[in-house]
Amino acid sequence: MVLNIIRLSFGSFLFLFIVACVNKPKSKDNIVSNKKILKDCRYYAYDVHQIVSNLGCYNCHIWASKRLNEISTFEELAEMDSLKLINYAFTKKHKGWYSKTGSFKTARMDTLTDCEIKNVIRYIKDAGRNIPMPSH
């Protein structure tokens, strides 16, 4: 009985040891690298507008307050929480049209970099902030 308990304990310890080694945490280098990319991520509204324009967001999520359909306007997207927006826009919605195998795969929504996604989210959020556009 005692021998069985010792064997079971040893087996569990061995199993946990192996699992701990196999599921090692992501390399610190990768984490630092991602942080560096986002730190160096520059927001330039004109370039982000080009991304949004190429994705074709405005084709369905129209400007102006009036809906012609059941799809959210651009201003309504701007009111959404940023994290919700990432899930809503880039993964769950759009019926897979923008996935790597979807009918709109050339719009490369699924292949935007972290920096580009961050900037697109900011661009969408800024649309609801009425930020004045200055000219010299």
């Binding site: 520059r42 330039y44 400007w63 102006a64 649309a127 902030r129 009425n130 930020i131 004045p132 556009m133 200055p134 000219s135 010299h136």
Partner: peptide, 21 residues
């Protein structure tokens, strides 16, 4: 109103538009 360009230089605004539309 003044704005800072992407190179860090400050400018006075000659015109301001309150968002699209």
């Amino acid at each position: 109103h003044q704005f800072t360009d992407q190179y860090g230089k400050r400018h006075y605004s000659g015109g301001l538009t309150n968002g699209k539309g």
